[in-house]
Design a protein around this nucleic acid. Structure first.
Lengths: 143, 143
DNA sequence: CCACGTCGTAACAACTAGAGTTACGACCAT
DNA sequence: ATGGTCGTAACTCTAGTTGTTACGACGTGG
């Protein structure tokens, strides 16, 4: 399916900011976050920019700049994060429209769309059941 | 997520074969299927080869060759098809291993894996609830 | 009011996967 | 033997993800 790591990285970044703030710091820099994720700071800034658009994160510029959570970890579900960074569906229909003169070619689109809608709903329900607070609790429990 | 159309095409092909056989034909050629899907026959042969490996389809070679279902449409769920063609997970973890000296970097992997396992289970359960017979019924009902 | 640290973002390269296409050998009923 | 079809390799094209460099914009602290 060519799965990507965007949800993982986004959850990592937000959780890291949350823990960092909980330890008394105001803002976290993309460089600090990137050091934990083990990637380039620009990758973090790009992802956090999308999360900011979705109202999950905030940023400050200038000296002493950095990133903050817009809401508490407990108020952010993985579904919120997912929706902020993954606009498209999990399954795609045909790239080229199938033969409309064929019964199957004509009806397969709507039929599969109905199934895919159900799948997306199940996926979202599952993601909605976990908050970043849950993720952090898991992390600290295992440490 | 860069979703692909493999599940859609695979379901289309199998359903087409099923309907074609139900109308009295022995085998369906990749060219006929490709004409309904509106793609290249090789694309169909490649996909059906994977479905054959999973025991969902069979093929004959030589003259009068072509494809058949290995099981009835009612005995093939979309989960069967999905598993035959999509080996990987929907969500990936970090590409590079995160910083193990950071609490979050160390614990985020297992934490997200637990969530992703739940998501995959929900997705599979949803796909398991629909057979190709259901898909064909939808198609014929809408026609 | 300037300097420094950080964000914001464009631009590019590397890599991967999906999809389409061509080509050709293998196979087998007729 | 012939012709139709599968089996599969090889190639191209496209798009998305990730990493990287670069540089302007910004604003706080000195």
């Amino acid at each position: 399916m060519s799965a990507n790591s965007r949800l993982t990285i986004a959850a990592h970044a937000l959780t890291w900011i949350g823990l960092y703030q909980r330890r008394g710091h105001e803002v976290a820099t993309s460089e600090q976050i990137a050091a934990s994720v083990n990637t380039n700071p620009v990758v973090i800034r790009r992802l956090l920019a999308e999360l900011r658009k979705a109202g999950l994160a905030e940023s400050r510029r200038g000296a002493g700049a950095g990133w903050m959570l817009a809401r508490d970890l407990a108020a952010i579900t993985l579904l919120d994060v997912y929706q902020a960074i993954e606009p498209g569906p999990v399954f795609a229909l045909h790239r080229a429209t199938p033969n409309p003169e064929c019964v199957v070619g004509h009806g397969i689109g709507p039929a599969m769309t109905a199934v895919y809608d159900g799948v997306e709903a199940a996926l979202r329900a599952e993601l909605a059941g976990t908050t970043l607070e849950d993720v952090l609790r898991d992390i600290l429990k295992a440490a």
